[in-house]
Design a protein around this nucleic acid. Structure first.
Length: 419
DNA sequence: TCTGGGGTCCTAGGACCC
DNA sequence: TCTGGGGTCCTAGGACCC
């Protein structure tokens, strides 16, 4: 029988900060979203103080009881690198590993010799010893069950970080007592609609007629129902699926009111998006640009718009930036205080595969982009960029509590000294 | 003063074709 | 009185995830 596992890093971003600053052990730690806006990761000490997921930072920071909380701006280069390290350790403990998100990985645990609980516990210990990241593991006959097992392992201290749901009787006991909203794929809306028809527990969901579930939650609901019954519908895939789109969007540190500032910002997003494209050896054939004012301050005047264009497939920064500028001109309106903008690239395909006879990139273009990426890799992001990307960046997002990029930038590496 | 960013999948409906 | 049927493709929008 197939056994799926799910390993999840506890309070991942906070744990990454702790890995490099041992003084944070047992202190409440909170990591903030981009622009230092909302709390997006909290240690259990911070959760105990009542700090909620997604809570706006400026609303909670004044409270006196929170004076001991350690706040951090998010440091994605650090977290991405730590995630890669966790993955590397797992490869030594499971025959197949599928990264699901930055802090979660599905595992194939089928047919491993010995006691599975012991093996999973050893795996956690190895991850923690090598990366300093604490984890929880859940497992069962399907991915949805493994995900639920992981939730239980994390939620209930008495489980000590492990939960085995391979046994049907054990599963049914939990199903009777857990709300359906804890199922992976059942969000707020679906849970509310299920509730309207009297379905509140997972047991009620699993035992409802599939036709009824189909009416409320369509094919996704029916599939989840089968998965929770132990019939596997979702397979493990080790090769990451070809992505369909790629975006670079940001909220600004202060509102943008002029077209020239917005052009700088949007150029910057187009530059960054093109870099990501080339790093993954992809071309894009569809470009969108959007701009919007602060949705929390509609009384100041609300405006949001987007424009998009289909183009010859490319990853050329200059070509994509020019298109983004054209699109921006079609939606720009004076007189608003813009809070956010972004560039999105779609219709992605492996570089060079979808060219027609007329849009083959010249050797010079390819060489120029290669040089630009090499220079920026060596001297830092943005060292070489289109002039229109500007130099001021007065709108750049706040990041006032940023830790060093301990593992990915040689200038920010940790120093040891002896006296 | 201050409220994230980046994805996925599915469905409905319109345009278009024969 | 009668005014087809069925297919594909594309897009927008909803819902979900971390």
């Amino acid at each position: 029988m197939t056994v799926y596992g799910l390993i999840d890093c506890n309070s991942f971003y906070c744990s990454c900060q702790r890995a490099f600053e041992p003084r944070l052990k047992r202190l409440p730690v909170v990591v903030l979203s981009n622009n230092d806006g909302c709390a997006i990761a909290r240690t259990k000490e911070a959760k105990a103080l009542g700090i909620k997921m997604g809570e706006p930072c400026h609303l909670v920071r004044e409270q006196r009881k929170l004076s001991g909380v350690q706040w951090y701006s998010s440091n994605y280069p650090l977290y991405a690198d730590m995630s890669r390290r966790v993955y590397q350790v797992l490869l030594d403990h499971a025959p197949r590993v599928e990264p699901y998100s930055i802090d979660e990985m599905f595992l194939d645990l089928t047919g491993l010799p010995g006691d599975l609980s012991q093996r999973c516990d050893d795996m956690r210990a190895a991850v923690e010893q090598i990366t300093k990241i604490p984890t929880c593991v859940g497992w069962g006959p399907t991915k949805a069950i493994a995900k639920l097992a992981n939730y239980i392992a994390k939620d209930r201290p008495e489980m000590e970080g492990l939960c085995d749901l391979t046994n049907e009787q054990t599963r049914n006991r939990f199903y009777r007592n857990l709300p359906v909203s804890e199922v992976w794929g059942i969000g707020r809306r679906l849970a509310a609609r299920l509730d309207d028809t009297g379905i509140r527990t997972i047991a009620q969901f699993v035992n409802a007629p599939p036709a009824h579930i189909r009416k409320i939650a369509a094919i996704i609901g029916v599939r989840l129902q089968a998965e929770l019954r132990g019939e596997s519908c979702l397979q493990l895939s080790e090769v990451a699926a070809q992505r369909h789109g790629l975006a670079c969007t940001r909220s600004f540190g202060r509102p943008i009111t002029t077209h020239s500032d917005m052009s700088e910002a949007v150029t910057g997003f187009a530059v960054r998006a093109s870099e990501k494209l080339r790093a993954e050896k992809l071309d894009a054939a569809h470009v969108s640009v959007f701009i919007q004012t602060n949705r929390h301050k509609r009384d100041e005047g609300w405006y949001a718009n987007q424009a998009s264009l289909t183009c010859a497939p490319t990853s050329n920064t200059l070509a994509l930036t020019a298109i983004a500028m054209r699109l921006l001109r079609t939606i720009w309106k004076d007189g608003f205080r813009y809070a956010k903008a972004g560039v999105m690239l779609n219709d992605l395909a492996p570089a060079g595969t979808q060219h027609t006879l007329f849009d083959i990139p010249s050797e010079q273009d390819t060489a120029l982009m290669g040089t630009m990426d090499a220079v920026n890799q060596r001297f830092g992001r943005g060292a070489l960029r289109p002039l229109s990307a500007g130099v001021e960046r007065s709108w750049r997002p706040r990041q006032n509590m940023l830790s060093p990029r301990f593992t990915t930038n040689v200038h920010e590496i940790m120093e040891a000294s002896s006296f």
